[in-house]
C-alpha cells in the first residue's frame, strides 16, 4: 500500500491533492501545525476512500519536530511517498521593512522541507520505491521586484529537488517539481494576479504529472511559456522592467 506524507496539510492545494488521492485508497500521514484543522481533513480523507489518515504535528521552523514523523514512518509498511506544500510569502514590502523576516521565509519554503526530505531519503532508498512531489513556484525561475526573497527560497528548493531527483532516481524513486503560478488560496486572496488556477486544478495537474512521470510540471501549463520568455529576457533589459 502507498502512504503519502503531506507536509503543509492545511494548505488549500494540499487539501485538494489529499481529496483526489483519497479516492485511490492511499493512506495519509498529515503533517502541519494546526492539529484541529488537520483532524478534519483526515476525517474527510477517510470518508472519501483513504485507507487510513493520521495527523502529526510538525513545524518547519523546528527541526526537532521532524523526528516523531520519521519514527512513525519507519513503522508503516509499504511504499512511502511525500508531498511538500509548505512555504510562506510575506509581501515583499514587509520584508524590505523588516529583513529579519528573511530566514523564516527561507526555512518555510526551502531549508525546512529540504532538511525533512534529506532525512526521509534513506528510508525511501531502502524500500526502493516511492514518489516525492515538491511544490515550488514560478517565482523561483527568476528574481523579480515583487517577491524576490520568496523567489530566491523557491529557486533554492527547485535546485534542491533537481539534485534529489538525480540521487533518488537511481533507486527507482521519482521526484517531481511542481511550479504553480498564482493559485486561488488564502495566500493570494485579495490580490489581482494573472492566470489564477484553482487548488483543484493544480492537484489534478500534480496527479496527471505523477502518472506520466514528469520531472517538472508548470501549472497552469501556460506558465511554462511565460517563464521561458521571462528567463530569455537579457538582464540589462530585465533589470529595468517591473513584471
Amino acid at each position: 500500500m502507498k502512504t503519502w506524507v503531506i507536509l503543509g496539510a492545511t494548505s488549500a492545494i494540499a487539501r485538494a491533492f489529499i481529496r483526489q488521492e483519497a479516492d485511490t485508497g492511499a493512506g495519509f500521514l498529515l503533517c502541519g501545525r494546526d492539529q484541529n484543522d488537520m483532524l478534519v481533513t483526515a476525517a474527510d480523507a477517510r470518508h472519501r476512500g483513504a485507507a487510513a489518515a493520521e495527523v502529526c504535528a510538525i513545524d518547519m521552523r523546528d527541526a526537532d519536530s521532524f523526528a516523531p514523523v520519521l519514527a512513525r514512518l519507519q513503522t508503516i509498511s509499504g511504499t512511502i511517498c511525500c508531498a511538500v506544500f509548505v512555504g510562506s510569502m510575506p509581501e515583499q514590502s514587509e520584508i524590505d521593512a523588516d529583513p529579519g523576516l528573511i530566514p523564516g521565509v527561507v526555512i518555510d519554503s526551502f531549508t525546512g522541507p529540504a532538511q525533512f526530505l534529506t532525512a526521509l531519503a534513506p528510508l525511501m532508498e531502502e524500500r526502493e520505491a516511492g514518489e516525492i512531489v515538491g511544490v515550488s513556484s514560478v517565482a523561483g525561475d527568476r528574481g523579480r521586484l515583487g517577491n524576490y526573497v520568496y523567489g530566491a527560497a523557491k529557486a533554492g528548493f527547485s535546485t534542491y529537488l533537481s539534485g534529489l531527483r538525480n540521487r533518488l532516481g537511481r533507486k527507482g524513486i521519482h521526484v517531481m517539481t511542481v511550479k504553480p503560478g498564482p493559485v486561488d488560496t488564502a495566500m493570494t486572496w485579495g490580490s489581482q494576479l494573472p492566470f489564477m488556477a484553482t487548488p483543484d486544478a493544480v492537484a489534478k495537474d500534480i496527479i496527471a504529472g505523477l502518472k506520466s512521470q514528469r520531472n517538472t510540471v508548470y501549472t497552469k501549463r501556460l506558465w511554462l511559456l511565460v517563464m521561458t520568455i521571462i528567463r530569455l529576457i537579457p538582464e540589462p533589459i530585465f533589470k529595468k522592467l517591473s513584471i
Binding site: 492545511t10 488549500a12 494546526d34 484541529n36 484543522d37 478534519v40 488560496t185 488564502a186 486572496w189
Partner: peptide
Amino acid sequence: LARPERQS
C-alpha cells in the same frame, strides 16, 4: 469578502 479555510 473573506474566505476562511479553517473552522477556527
